[in-house]
Amino acid sequence: MKSTLTSLLVFTLSCTRPAHTTHPVADGALSLYPKPTLLDEPGFTKLAISRQDSTMWLRADIQRDHHIFGYEQPDTTSRKLLLLSLFTDSVQGNPHQCLYGAYYESASLNDLHLTFVRFTNAFAESRLLSGAKPIDTLYFRKEWVMWTP
């Protein structure tokens, strides 16, 4: 009886952990399952670009995560100028010290708004405007933005 239970347990474990799913992860260790990214999740919100006037916006949805930085240069190691995030710990008190602040959605930018300029390699170049007056240029990772239909 004991050997039957042991065989059943070994069989069950071998069915739930296939060997071919191992892969390297960022720290060099091996993982049994591919590490999912936020972009792989269907519930992830992206920064939208209007095809009509190039306006960029993001509306917060509690069911869909987002954590999107606007950088000073098209480089993720450059200064973080703006953050749009669903996560309270990333917004309250602006812990990332973004020059233009941290917000839950673009509507919270008050009198500021974003417009799309062009794609620059792996980034979407945008302008931060106050009314019609340009304030600064921000770069968002290309995979965090999408054109609206």
Rank of each mutant, 00 (worst) to 15 (best):
R59W: 06
W144K: 10
D27F: 01
G101W: 05
D65C: 04
L8Y: 02
P74W: 06
E41G: 07
K46L: 11
F140V: 12
G131R: 06
D27W: 01
P95N: 07
P95E: 07
F69W: 07
H113P: 02
Q97H: 06
S85K: 07
T45N: 10
S78L: 14
S7M: 10
H96A: 13
L83T: 10
G28Q: 05
P74E: 13
E72P: 00
K35C: 10
S106M: 08
A26S: 11
S3N: 04
I135S: 03
R79E: 13
H67K: 08
V145C: 15
A107Q: 05
L114C: 02
K35W: 02
M146T: 13
S126I: 09
S14G: 03
Q73R: 13
A29C: 06
D61Y: 04
S108H: 10
S78Y: 05
S126E: 07
S7H: 01
E72A: 15
S78G: 14
H66W: 01
P36M: 05
L129F: 00
Y104W: 08
H96N: 13
T4Y: 04
D65T: 05
M56I: 06
I62W: 02
F69H: 11
W147D: 08
Y103L: 12
T148C: 14
K35R: 14
L84E: 02
T12Q: 14
H23Y: 03
S31H: 00
R118C: 15
G93D: 14
